[in-house]
Amino acid sequence: MNRLFYLFTLPWVAGFAGFTAFPLGYAFWLSLTNTDALAPESRFVGAANYAEVLDDGLAGEALVRTLVFTAVTVPASVAGGLLFAVLLQLPVRGRSLYRAVLFLPAVVPPVAGALTFGALFDRDTGAVNVLLERFGVAGPGWTDGPRLPFVIGVLVLWGLGNLMMVSLAALADVPRDLFDAARVDGAGPLRTFTSVTLPLVSPVLLFQVVTGVIAGLQTYLPALVLGSAGAGGSLAALPEGGYFFMAHVYTRYAVAGRFGYASALLWALFVVTLLCAALMLRTTRRHVFTLTSPGGARP
């Protein structure tokens, strides 16, 4: 049995060693220096970069903003994905068309999606404000200030097709006879959903929430694309509302060239992510049907 475990997991373990462990070790090494990776000499600075992280006001603000954004968008998109998946399990006419349409945004290239939303919500020329004006409302600037997280949030929800797909696959895995049994017991659709469907797909939902939070804490691309046009397309100077933690990291890294410091920031994010994940797994332990040890049964 031991041998089999190693056999099956060997490719992943090898990939982990080469593509994760080595780069991580390297980045940790960088984080102990003041290197910009271009200057011919750099110095070992010990924990100075980490001390600076704790003292970095911009990083703190960005982290809070990111946590709030994640706490709102992740549950919303997981719930949305599940809702659509459940509806599309029903024998509705044209459901494969609906499925395709709802999934479609998930495959729009991220840059194009962000640009589209940027154009939609543009203060002077965007469709949203042009329509608002028809109704006599003076449209605000959506992408240049505190309203940017709203636009990014809508963009994230728009792309919930991936979650819907995973939920669809999970629902497909629920044995049919359980639904029949529930119906025989006289349970209505809502009752069936809460007492049969939800518990059975709860491991996948938890999985989606945890991975969603992990990804959410790393959100930066839409903010970068939506927010950065103002500075001549450069990464500099993101609007405050889009200044997520990864955007901070990214600008330290690609704008300031502070490879050492940016690596320290990333390690800090890693610790925060770890804490969030641990918290979620701990608090849900009792409620999730099987997030489980091998074999499907909890010890």
Partner: peptide
Amino acid sequence: MMIPGVIT
């Protein structure tokens, strides 16, 4: 999964 790709 918690490691941001930029680091690598």
